[in-house]
């Protein structure tokens, strides 16, 4: 069974590609690797990233960490709780509305659903445009437009997530298996029936999973939105960082970790309930 040297050479002559990359390819790879490392080193140099600076930064971090222990709710703990609740509510409202509206938009942006290229193209480019602007920028704009407070935060989450979710949904729909909707069509169903019964059951679990993940992620990013005045826990954090009440900041961070963990557990249970079991048909 084991080949002798002659057999090996014969096979090398017959199927050279089966013996891994040739000498030229390997040399090219080394050159490309070296070039990448050089480029990486150059960007370190460009931003003046030196071990000394990193070390000093670590010392600063250590000071902050020392000030954080023990975490304390402070005197205004009711404001913290209120802010946290507001953040969760903002994230929920923004994500829920975005996820809902992203479903029809996702269908509009899917290649296998909308065959009119111009319409689909403009819908997709619109998503791209909105996605190009970060959530924080939207928040700043909405704070100017509708004033300080959670409404600006909800609108910011809604706008940025709508574009991302619509794109993700459109991709999920494009990846849906054709055979299932073909079966619906072959039984005399119309195009809408094919979407409703052939495509939607395939993509709904993906959509739900993504919406739940976005809700969790938005609860985290709601902290940042507060910093620019768009409501929620972020404002509480920003105020305490300004006056260096790091122990209270630590308390807020712990609270956020707990909240996100709770949401994660809940959404996991929801996901299992709605899409996990095989015997449970959805929609």
């Amino acid at each position: 069974m084991r080949p002798d040297a002659q057999t090996v050479t014969q096979w090398q002559a017959r199927l050279p590609a089966a013996f891994g990359p040739g000498r030229a390819t390997r040399a090219l790879r080394w050159v490309a690797g070296a070039a990448f490392l050089l480029w990486l080193g150059w960007s370190f140099w460009l931003f003046d990233i030196t071990p000394a600076r990193l070390w000093n930064g670590l010392e600063g971090l250590a000071t902050i960490l020392r000030l954080m222990v023990p975490p304390s709710p402070g005197e205004l703990w009711l404001d913290i709780l209120k802010g946290m609740a507001e953040s969760v509510a903002m994230a929920f409202l923004g994500t829920f509305l975005a996820a809902l509206l992203a479903v029809p938009l996702g269908f509009l942006g899917a290649r296998n659903i909308v065959t009119v290229t111009l319409l689909r193209f403009s819908v997709r480019r619109l998503f791209d445009g909105i996605r190009g602007v970060d959530q924080l920028i939207w928040a700043l704009a909405y704070v100017r437009a509708v004033g300080l407070g959670p409404l600006a935060g909800v609108l910011a989450i809604f706008t940025s997530d709508l574009a991302v979710l619509a794109k993700l949904y459109a991709e999920a729909i494009e990846n849906a298996e054709k055979r299932q909707s073909e079966g619906v069509m072959a039984s005399g169903g119309g195009r809408l029936h094919a979407l409703r019964f052939g495509v939607l059951p395939q993509v709904l679990p993906v959509m739900l999973a993504q919406a739940l993940y976005f809700f969790e992620s938005n609860t985290r990013s709601a902290a940042i939105l507060g910093v620019v005045g768009a409501g929620g826990i972020g404002l509480q954090i920003a105020e305490r960082i300004k006056v260096r009440h790091w122990d209270e900041v630590a308390f807020i961070i712990l609270l956020m970790v707990l909240t996100v963990a709770a949401i994660d557990t809940l959404s996991g249970a929801l996901r299992r309930r709605l899409i996990g079991r095989r015997e449970a048909a959805i929609t």
Partner: peptide
């Protein structure tokens, strides 16, 4: 890293 000696590759091709 998918490093298999030429002997093993020839052996696989024979199989």
């Amino acid at each position: 890293f998918k490093h298999f000696p030429a002997e093993e590759r020839a052996m696989a091709l024979m199989a």
